[in-house]
Computed example of a mutant assay.
Amino acid sequence: MSAKRMHIDRDRLYTDLQYRFDYVSQFIGFTEVDQELIHRSASVVSGLVPTIVDAVYDRLSNYDATWSHFAQDQDGMQIKQTAERGGYNGSQVSIESEVIKFRKVMLTKYLKKLVTSEWNLSYLKYLDWVGHIHTTTPLKRSNINVEYIHCNALFGYLSSVVLGALAKVTEWDADTRDGIIGAYNRFFWLQNDLFSRYYVKDQVLTDKEKAAVAAEKKEKEDEMRRRLRMESMLNAAVGLAAGSILATVGFKYLARG
Rank of each mutant, 00 (worst) to 15 (best):
C151L: 11
D202H: 12
M77Y: 03
D128K: 03
I8N: 07
F102M: 08
S68Y: 02
F102C: 10
G47E: 05
L228S: 11
R229M: 05
R10P: 00
H134Q: 10
F155Y: 15
A65D: 12
T31H: 06
P50I: 06
W119C: 08
D128F: 01
F70G: 02
D54F: 01
V56W: 00
Y63F: 11
F188A: 05
Y157R: 13
R12I: 01
D16W: 04
E231Q: 11
A237K: 15
L107T: 11
R12S: 06
L154Q: 14
I180F: 03
K112N: 15
K4I: 11
F251I: 08
I149K: 15
Q18N: 07
Q191F: 00
W119N: 10
C151K: 08
V53L: 06
K201D: 05
F102D: 11
V130Q: 10
A153W: 13
V115T: 15
L127E: 03
F70T: 04
R186F: 02
L228N: 12
M6D: 11
R256Q: 09
K208L: 06
D175F: 03
E96M: 06
E96H: 12
Y88M: 12
T51K: 15
A83H: 15
Y199T: 08
A241T: 14
I181C: 11
Q74S: 09
E96N: 13
F195H: 09
I38S: 00
K140N: 06
K113C: 06
S68I: 00
V213L: 09
L194V: 03
K168P: 00
E209G: 04
L246E: 02
M77P: 01
V146K: 10
Y23L: 02
Q203M: 08
R229W: 04
V49E: 05
V45G: 01
V56D: 02
Y184I: 03
L246A: 15
R229T: 09
E231I: 11
I100F: 05
G87E: 14
M233D: 12
E209A: 10
M6A: 10
P50S: 10
R256N: 09
I79V: 15
M77F: 04
E223K: 14
P138I: 07
K80V: 11
A255Q: 14
E223F: 02
S46Y: 03
G131H: 06
I180D: 04
G90R: 11
L139K: 14
A3V: 09
L13V: 03
H7P: 00
M230Q: 13
N152T: 09
H39G: 08
V99F: 01
Y157S: 08
S232T: 13
V53H: 04
D34E: 04
K208I: 02
Q81S: 14
F195P: 00
Y110M: 07
N145K: 15
V24K: 13
K125V: 00
L254E: 12
D22A: 09
L190I: 11
D202R: 10
A83S: 14
V56P: 01
I52D: 03
